[in-house]
Design a binder for these strands. Structure first.
Length: 270
DNA sequence: AAAGACACCTGGGAGC
DNA sequence: TGCTCCCAGGTGTCTT
């Protein structure tokens, strides 16, 4: 569920319920996530106001009086806006109870997510080595070309590396490479600048479009559904192994790159 | 230095 | 029905 568009949608979804509100209670039912939730937060957070919600890579950042709460949804996490009387589910690990009565509930069955704290005037180590945002001007052709120069690593693994560019997960990496006509296995250093330019444009176009569509599920999200879909019918290759290419009708193939499944069209992608 | 392997964890689906 | 095995949207860290 949580690729960058879903994280962005989540940020927009919780902002109206948290910004300018004071956090009245921080409830932790299961502190063992990817890293333990700092115990001190239960004492430290209540009373602090949430000034703004923003996103960096796939981290959701709540700017508060004395620092920022970092939330990462991992592979299976979600945040929902609920009311205090909503029954607590098996994997509902954390509640942010706001003074206006709404509750931001963190659910994460696989517990690969994170809830950490970044004090004012400091940058958490997890955020220090991140590459540029894919939708920013810093992610451009010259930049990506420089990141690929001399690299034997596959282009798919290259664009999924957070140090190169953030927020490009398995779904959108697969889709962008299809749209750009590039074989996901191709060595990053053996792709022309012109083709990398196409890839940069497609990454931006697809993420931007997905965010737009993610926005359409905002109402459901806020209503407590909490499961914005990723529009399966619009995917060209991801999850379509052995099916036919929507463009040329060839049978799609699957390979594994960096332990991740990668579906591609052997005819459209070179 | 770069690239690959492995780790964390639960649930769902396929196959027997 | 039920068991076992494999796979899944992420990403930091350890090993070659």
């Amino acid at each position: 569920m949580p690729e960058l568009p879903e994280v962005e949608t989540t940020c927009r979804g919780i902002a109206p319920y948290t910004e300018s509100q004071t956090l009245s209670e921080f409830i932790v039912r299961q502190p063992q996530l990817r890293w333990p939730i700092p115990e001190i937060l239960c004492d430290q957070l209540p009373g602090q106001k949430v000034h703004r919600v923003r996103r960096r890579a796939k981290y959701i950042l709540l700017e508060m009086d004395h620092g920022e709460l970092l939330i990462h949804l991992g592979m299976s996490g979600s945040l929902r806006v609920v009311t205090v009387d909503e029954p607590v589910g098996k994997h509902d690990h954390v509640d942010l109870v706001m003074s206006n009565g709404s509750v931001i509930r963190f659910c994460d069955p696989r517990r690969f997510g994170t809830v950490l704290w970044q004090a004012s005037q400091s940058i958490h180590p997890l955020l220090q080595t991140l590459g540029p945002e894919p939708l920013s001007d810093a992610f451009n052709t010259d930049y990506l070309y420089g990141c690929c120069l001399g690299r034997k690593q596959s282009i798919k693994q290259r664009i999924m590396d957070n140090h190169v560019v953030v927020g490009v997960g398995n779904i959108y990496a697969s889709e962008a490479l299809f749209a750009a006509g590039i074989d996901p296995r191709r060595a990053a250093g053996r792709i022309s600048k012109k083709r990398l330019d196409r890839l940069v444009q497609e990454v931006k176009r697809i993420l931007d479009y997905a965010i737009t569509r993610g926005g359409t599920t905002l109402r459901d999200f806020v209503g407590g559904d909490g499961k914005p879909g990723y529009f399966q019918q619009e995917l060209y290759v991801y999850g379509r192994k052995d099916e036919l290419c929507k463009v040329c009708n060839s049978q799609l193939k699957e390979v594994r790159l960096g332990q991740r499944s990668s579906v591609y069209c052997p005819s459209c992608q070179r």
